[in-house]
């Protein structure tokens, strides 16, 4: 896993997102699809997205305090936001990411 980008590495309006999924479960697949579509629509070219399969890295479950999955974390801009679920409720996702205008 490569070093995660920090605030300094990014222009202020760039979004740093991380999505935790569990393999190819329906929820995970839906979450990935929903997020990709959403980002293309609202955050074109100003986001970095990392997708983490927790099954592959079981040790991060504790260190990253994972309970409910899929989990989308907005690492930047601060403050950190956490969104759980398959991201099908677009309004809530946008709200959670602070993208509502």
């Amino acid at each position: 896993m490569k070093g995660f980008p920090t605030e300094q590495d990014h222009p202020p309006d760039t979004y740093v997102l991380r999505l935790y999924i569990t393999g190819a479960t329906p929820n995970s697949i839906r979450a990935v699809a929903n997020l990709k579509q959403l980002c293309e629509e609202h955050l074109k070219d100003r986001y970095t997205l990392e997708i983490v399969d927790v099954y592959q890295q079981a040790d991060i479950a504790e260190s990253d305090n994972l309970v409910a999955l899929p989990l989308l974390v907005r690492k930047f801009p601060l403050p950190e936001r956490r969104l759980i679920g398959d991201l099908s409720d677009t309004k809530k996702v946008l709200n959670g990411l602070g993208l509502t205008r």
Binding site: Y20, T22, T25, P26, N27, R30, A31, N34, V54, Y55, A58, A61, E62, L66, V67, A68, L69, P70, L71, L72, R81, R82, L83, I84, G85, D86, L87, S88, D89, K92, V93, N95, G96
Partner: peptide, 14 residues
């Protein structure tokens, strides 16, 4: 924020 269907796999894995 809850944005749809989820499960507690995180807890299970942990």
């Amino acid at each position: 924020e809850e944005t749809g269907e989820y499960d507690l796999d995180g807890l299970f894995i942990r």
